[in-house]
Amino acid sequence: MKVIIGYLAGLLFGLGLAIGGMTDPARVLNFLDVSGAWDPTLLFVLGGAVVTTFIGYQLAFKRSNPLFTEKFQLPTRRDLDGRLMGGAALFGIGWGLSGYCPGPAFASMAGLTTPLAAMLVAMVAGWWLARRFSTQ
């Protein structure tokens, strides 16, 4: 059941990305271009994600345990280290250069283009490097 729920959640997430225009790198890049052809429409997508997440967490935490597992799995670390800050910086640079973040990139694979393929290869290489040189 856990796998089915995970699949359905991923499918719903991908559908939301497609409907919200997050799979269009030009729209994302125009959203990031605040001094030029700024496109504010993704504010609604981001705002909708924040509101939905807030409501979901409020409903989930009213329960004593999750529906499909024994306990909630929440992050316990609260510190900001170099790996986190470096990863966040690389994520932002990659998003700004390509117009894709990982979710929309995978959701866009049906219409694979050369820039999307390059971004996916770079992302997988980054994951590999991070795991290869991890100190933990």
Rank of each mutant, 00 (worst) to 15 (best):
G47M: 11
G82Q: 11
V121E: 04
A88E: 11
W38F: 02
D33E: 01
F106P: 02
P104I: 00
L42H: 09
T69K: 13
L90T: 03
F31N: 08
T23L: 01
A49E: 13
P102M: 01
F133E: 03
M109S: 12
N65M: 12
F68H: 03
A107N: 07
L120P: 01
P104M: 03
D24I: 03
P102W: 03
F44A: 14
G16R: 00
S134R: 12
A105E: 07
G14W: 00
T135H: 05
R83H: 09
G92L: 13
I19Q: 06
I5V: 15
R27Q: 09
G6S: 13
G48Q: 02
L112V: 15
P75K: 00
T41N: 08
L8Y: 10
L43E: 12
G96T: 04
G87C: 08
M109W: 09
V34A: 02
L42A: 06
L43K: 08
L8T: 06
Y100N: 06
D79F: 14
I93A: 14
G99E: 03
K71H: 10
L90F: 09
T135N: 07
P40Q: 00
L32E: 07
M109H: 13
R131G: 15
G56R: 06
A107H: 04
P115N: 07
A89K: 10
D81V: 03
V51Y: 09
V121K: 00
L90S: 10
G56M: 05
M119R: 08
S98E: 03
F61L: 11
R132T: 13
A107C: 13
A122T: 04
L129D: 09
A122E: 05
L116A: 10
L17A: 13
L84F: 10
F133Q: 05
A88V: 10
K71T: 14
G20K: 04
Q136M: 14
T113E: 05
R83N: 12
G99V: 00
E70S: 14
P115C: 09
V50S: 13
I4A: 14
K62I: 01
V124N: 03
Y100H: 08
W95P: 02
D79W: 05
I93S: 12
